[in-house]
């Protein structure tokens, strides 16, 4: 058995893990799989006589998880001076205590 660690940047959550594992464990020659959405890496132990790393990579790509590709798209970018454009568009301009906070807190507010 040999071990292989592959970077899979697009595997950012555990529903991806289910897909990735299904794809890999179906592959002949793949023995064990540890797919981590936390570290976006997959640890595969496989029998090099039965399956080649290229095939493993292809399987991943076919399942929609290409190795080393697919960084999370960040839909919002800060300006050159690190200003978050949402500060202007969200338009939250609170200048006083929200009465709802006081009402809802009930007796818990009496510390």
């Amino acid at each position: 058995m040999e071990k292989l660690i592959l970077e899979v940047p697009s595997m950012y959550a555990d529903h991806h893990v289910l897909t990735v594992r299904d794809a890999l464990t179906d592959l002949k020659g793949v023995d064990e799989v540890y797919a981590s959405s936390t570290w976006k890496q997959v640890l595969i132990s496989y029998d090099p006589a039965k399956v080649k790393p290229k095939a493993i990579e292809k399987t991943l790509a076919d399942a929609g998880y290409p190795v080393g590709e697919g960084e999370t798209p960040i839909l919002v970018k800060a300006s050159a001076i690190k200003r978050d454009p949402k500060w202007e568009t969200l338009g939250v301009r609170t200048t006083k205590t929200n009465q709802i906070d006081i009402d809802m807190s009930g007796e818990h507010r009496r510390y």
């Binding site: 959550a13 555990d14 981590s36 959405s37 936390t38 929200n98 709802i100 906070d101 809802m104 818990h108």
Partner: peptide
């Protein structure tokens, strides 16, 4: 706001993350 605070003050719930935590 009412709904969120209602939960904060009256519904005793918590999340328990078992195992590694992803994005």
């Amino acid at each position: 706001r009412e709904i969120l605070l209602y939960n904060k003050f009256r519904v005793f719930a918590f999340g328990l993350a078992l195992g590694e935590v992803d994005d």
